[in-house]
Nucleic acid binder design. Structure first.
Lengths: 104, 104
DNA sequence: TCTATATTTCTAGTAATATAGAAACATGGA
DNA sequence: TCCATGTTTCTATATTACTAGAAATATAGA
C-alpha cells in the first residue's frame, strides 16, 4: 500500500538509510555499514530496516554473517508513478515513461 | 524538509486529498469539493489540508467564500527528485529531467 | 444589519510510533 | 565445541499524531 511506503520513508533515520541504499544501487549495504555512516545504535537501525522491508521498499539477503539490504526499485518506481498518476486530468501532460530496473 | 513532505503524504486522508489536487491541476479544489468526494468531516479535512500546506506541498487562495487549494508542483518535483538523487552512485543511470510547472 | 454558507481553530480523548538497553539468535572460524 | 561478530527481537518509556464535536471566523447576499 502506498501509505505504508510513504510512512516508511517519512522518518529521518529511515529516509537516510533508504537514500544510502538508493546510492548504493544493486550492490546494497549491510546494517553495519549503515550504522557506521548514520551513527545510530544497531538495534534502532534494525527496527527501521524492518519497517522499510515490511513496506516493500527494500529486500534482504543473508550473505555469511551479514545481511545485505537493497532498494526494490520496482516498488520505488510504482510509488513515484502513483503520486503523478492522472496528473492535471491527463491534459497538457506527457506521460512518465516506465522504468523497470532503476529509478534513474 | 523532505521528511515533513513525506510525513504529510503518509496518511490516508491527506494522500487522497493530495491525489485529487494533483488530478485537478492548476484549477485546484475547494475543501468543500474534497469533503464531498472523500466523505470526511470538514474540520478533519481542514486539519489535514493545513498539514499539507505546512509541508509546502499545497497552496491556498481565497476566492470569495471559498479557499482554493492547489498542488505546488515545484515542491512536488523537488521531493521526487530528492528520492532518486545520486541513484546507483550515478553509474549506468540517466539523469531525471527537470520539469518546472507540472510533474507529468 | 442579519442570515446562510464555507472554512478554520480549539479541545480532549485515543492510538500509533520512536528510541535504546538488554537479551537472544545466527554464522564463521579457531 | 567455544568464542567473536553481526544482526535481530523483546521490552518499556516517552513523544507525536488522528479524530471529530463544538465554537469561532470570514465572506456574500438579502
Amino acid at each position: 500500500m502506498v501509505v505504508n511506503a510513504l510512512s516508511a520513508l517519512a522518518q529521518s533515520v529511515r529516509l537516510q538509510a533508504f537514500r544510502a541504499l538508493v546510492v548504493a544501487g544493486a550492490a546494497g549495504l549491510t546494517p553495519g555499514a549503515i550504522v557506521e555512516s548514520l551513527g545510530v545504535p544497531a538495534n534502532t537501525l534494525s527496527f527501521h530496516l524492518k519497517e522499510l522491508n515490511f513496506a516493500g521498499l527494500v529486500t534482504q539477503q543473508r550473505i555469511g554473517r551479514n545481511i545485505v539490504y537493497r532498494v526494490d526499485f520496482n516498488q520505488m518506481n510504482a510509488l513515484l508513478s502513483y503520486l503523478t498518476e492522472n496528473c492535471c486530468a491527463g491534459a497538457a501532460c506527457v506521460v512518465v515513461s516506465q522504468r523497470t530496473d532503476c529509478v534513474c
